[in-house]
């Protein structure tokens, strides 16, 4: 079954915990990341009232360095980025199960890597 990481990115705070947790777990040098935040905004919409008036969104990109923490998950542990996500917006699991969480109420992204 394909595994993936689901991100409820309406709530991502841009805190970098996923990035640094991953860098330290994989021992990556300066400039390299297994997961890296992208940032959109902040900018204003003219036609959207609060609380959606501002766009300021983070979403991590998973790089080729990521193996979904195979060494950890086979022991029953969470991938390091998911475990340390301070915003409670990351989930790990089978992509079919994860997709069921995408309920249309907030913004979600389901990321899967090469196996």
């Amino acid at each position: 079954m394909t595994k993936g990481i689901l991100i409820n990115y309406d709530y991502c705070t841009g805190c970098h915990s996923c990035e640094v947790a991953c860098k330290k777990t994989l021992g990556l040098p300066e400039g390299e990341f297994g997961i890296k935040l992208t940032e959109v905004g902040p900018y204003e919409y003219t036609d959207k009232p609060a609380p959606d008036h501002w766009e300021w969104t983070w979403l991590p990109v998973i790089t080729k360095a990521c193996d979904l923490c195979m060494g950890r998950t086979t022991k029953g542990k969470m991938p390091s980025c998911v475990q340390h996500c301070q915003a409670w917006c990351m989930y790990y699991g089978d992509v079919e199960d994860l997709a069921k969480k995408m309920d249309g109420k907030t913004r979600w992204a389901l990321l899967a890597t090469r196996e």
């Binding site: 970098h16 990035e19 640094v20 947790a21 330290k24 475990q83 301070q86």
Partner: peptide, 20 residues
């Protein structure tokens, strides 16, 4: 170092100052 998911205070979540 890693966060402790069984700790009820912060549930294994860590900021980058502890992660580093």
């Amino acid at each position: 170092i890693e966060g402790d998911p069984l700790d009820p205070c912060t549930n294994g979540k860590l900021c980058i100052r502890c992660l580093n």
